[in-house]
Amino acid sequence: MQLTNIESIPGKTIVEHYGLVQGSSIRAKHVGRDFAAGLKNLVGGELRGYTELLQESRAQAIERMKLQAIELGANAIVNVRFATSSVAAGASEMMVYGTAVLVE
């Protein structure tokens, strides 16, 4: 499965379009991580725990999108976009969407 965020796959031609595919994942932080983050909020700096959490969440959203594309018979997804929104205090949704295509 090849992914790009441009309209084509360079060096290949798109022979068929399957339409929109998407994946999303909502994750909450656990209390321990939130406590450590509270301390970090005093002195600044990177919140490694949150960075990892959001990366895992995004990776899962991408996996779900890929599964949808595989079911359609696609071998690539073009024009992929990411979107993040906080749906509740302490939880955020990662969404990823793109166009499933068949390339040769």
Binding site: L3, G11, G44, R58
Partner: peptide, 20 residues
């Protein structure tokens, strides 16, 4: 000729400090 084209991403979470 292009050998490989793939999606890559990088992310980071940064906290604000109490003074700011």
């Amino acid at each position: 000729p292009v050998e490989r084209a793939h999606l890559v991403h990088g992310s980071v979470v940064i906290a604000v400090d109490a003074f700011k």
